[in-house]
Design a protein around this nucleic acid. Sequence first.
DNA 1: CTGAAAGCGCTTACAG
DNA 2: CTGAAAGCGCTTACAG
Lengths: 378, 378
Amino acid sequence: MSTGAASFGSGGTRGRESALRASGPGAITDRMSSRPASGRHPTMDQVAEAAGVSRATVSRVINGAPSVDAKIREMVQRAIAETGYVPNVAARSLVTRRSNSVALVISEPDRPDNNSFLNRIFTDPYFGRITAGATTALRPHDIHLVVIPTDSTDHHQVIRYLRQGHVDGVLLISSHEQDTLPRQVHELGIPAVVSARPTSPIAVSFVDVDQRLGARLAAERLLSRGCRRLATISGPLDIPSGLDRLDGYRAYLAEHGFDAVPSVEGDFTRAGGEAAARRLLTEHPEVDGLFVASDLMAEGALRAVQDLGRRVPDDLAVVGFDDSSAALDCRPLLTTVRQPVEEMAAEMAEVLLAHIAAPGRLPRSVTFQPTLVVRDSA
Amino acid sequence: MSTGAASFGSGGTRGRESALRASGPGAITDRMSSRPASGRHPTMDQVAEAAGVSRATVSRVINGAPSVDAKIREMVQRAIAETGYVPNVAARSLVTRRSNSVALVISEPDRPDNNSFLNRIFTDPYFGRITAGATTALRPHDIHLVVIPTDSTDHHQVIRYLRQGHVDGVLLISSHEQDTLPRQVHELGIPAVVSARPTSPIAVSFVDVDQRLGARLAAERLLSRGCRRLATISGPLDIPSGLDRLDGYRAYLAEHGFDAVPSVEGDFTRAGGEAAARRLLTEHPEVDGLFVASDLMAEGALRAVQDLGRRVPDDLAVVGFDDSSAALDCRPLLTTVRQPVEEMAAEMAEVLLAHIAAPGRLPRSVTFQPTLVVRDSA
DNA sequence: CTGAAAGCGCTTACAG
DNA sequence: CTGAAAGCGCTTACAG
């Protein structure tokens, strides 16, 4: 942290190189072709000199300004290739006020142990799909993603990071109700898109899936299969998606004459699903149709169900939610409600890009429709 | 991309604010305390003016220079708090030539489908542990991690990114034999640490686990349990760790009189492990002890084994490798060789930091010892 | 211990 | 269409 030394290779040779360059374009070419750019960093002025034009013209060529004369452009491009020039991003950012990267902030409730928290984040199929979708959408724009996991103990660090101008905008994955980060980010005034309807009433763009509809799809499937003793393992009830899936499921069943639907609250983990299923079947052994609010929980639940001697789907049909890779790890293969997470993350990225390009743009929300993916468990 | 507009909030009000500030420190304080810094960005000059010192002094306070007078330091800190000042990282990087971030490049073989490739990367427990370990080690240094998944089709993009000075160094996760990225990164001259001994002979620092020792531990466990019909599901044999684990296993068994040890090559995925186990048990139904070269494969293998009617560990004992979270998802719980991945990633980060701080430092390698974690499968 | 000044490497009005 | 010049917001020798 303390030294100001150049980060790249032999910065110390720069003086010597400049001297060589001063002897003319020919010398430069010979020099560079025999030692392809590696570890040293020519400057835009040096490219300009090699091409016999001004620095401004080099800049225009690099940034694709249409006004540049074709021949000159070509000369410059040759000079760029010969010198192995690559723009310095710090210098560029300083004037453009753009970093060409965005943050993906994954905000979770407090955790006891830092390392396992991070491990869970970086290993969760849901976050994996988010990251993959956002990365894919951003790549063609040459914008990079900085992934920042956080809980409430380091919100201030995240805010500081954002304020320092490291990124042009933020994709905020936040699900629990009490999370104050969406509001803090909003107050920062930095372009942002949130992964679900924020619980506090702030004017911010977000992308969501129709959670209730998804739960209704699950209920419908179970009913149409002939299940009549229905239950559910819900997500955490302090998370809107957890609540909405439970509500949607119950609402649909109520509409069809099923009123007291047992439910056990889970925590969106495999182990949590397993424990919840065990409890549920102990208290309600008669259950023949089960909606589990995430595939990961369903994977655990399936294990418990089968341990307890029930055959799936014959004795007990199970429908999950997500259609993540976990659904394919289940035996039998999991029938589940598909949430198009990659596409949702890509949409978040697109909306964010639009906000960055036009800071005055009004916030908007985009809702995706879930679909039922029928496999073997129901 | 085309506009040079400020990325943050109401950049346009700056002129007005400066005017307000010019009316004296009192005005600034009042202004700022009623509107806590949000969306607007005071500059170091403004802090200096508010504190009645020079810009250089503010800089020294921010960077913790010891020479600053205590009273002045305090005045400056107050001014910083009142104005809500946060340094502009681009300006700082331009002069320090440091970005305070490092890249975590995850290099994998070519993949057919981009999205599923990314999904696998961001969901794999091994990469998850790497990311968690590196993040934890870097956090106290206030250095951020930019995660960059890549295959050979976009090596040039990665190289360009690195050359642009986005990061001060790179943590390179590369396992397959033919990967040319370690060499390319090495030639760039940027500080780098690789996750395993590079297959091409380049002088670069790396961190590894003693793969052969791990495999020997597994073999020893199986033998001491009384298994006498031993087999293995190996990793991909074009990956050094895959090869080394197979070799170590066979070598130990050979030393103990077991010569023809059947093996099937897997691909380090759950599905691959399942298929491999099915094949292995079909061809060698007599097997009673099995070393599976990764926990994820072991999870799949366990499923196949039990599907085929074998009881674990009584009919067939199974030892995995990694001790990732997958080991706890196995039924029975997986006995496995623990690779301390988080600690290894943290060590990679420390070594990288040392290289960044002292560019002339000689490359070195650090090897961790694996340990056997006994649970229920063997 | 502190300040004035130079300079990091770009982009972008502004002239021509 | 092109160039000279200003300026982005910092850090760091260099004097004092």
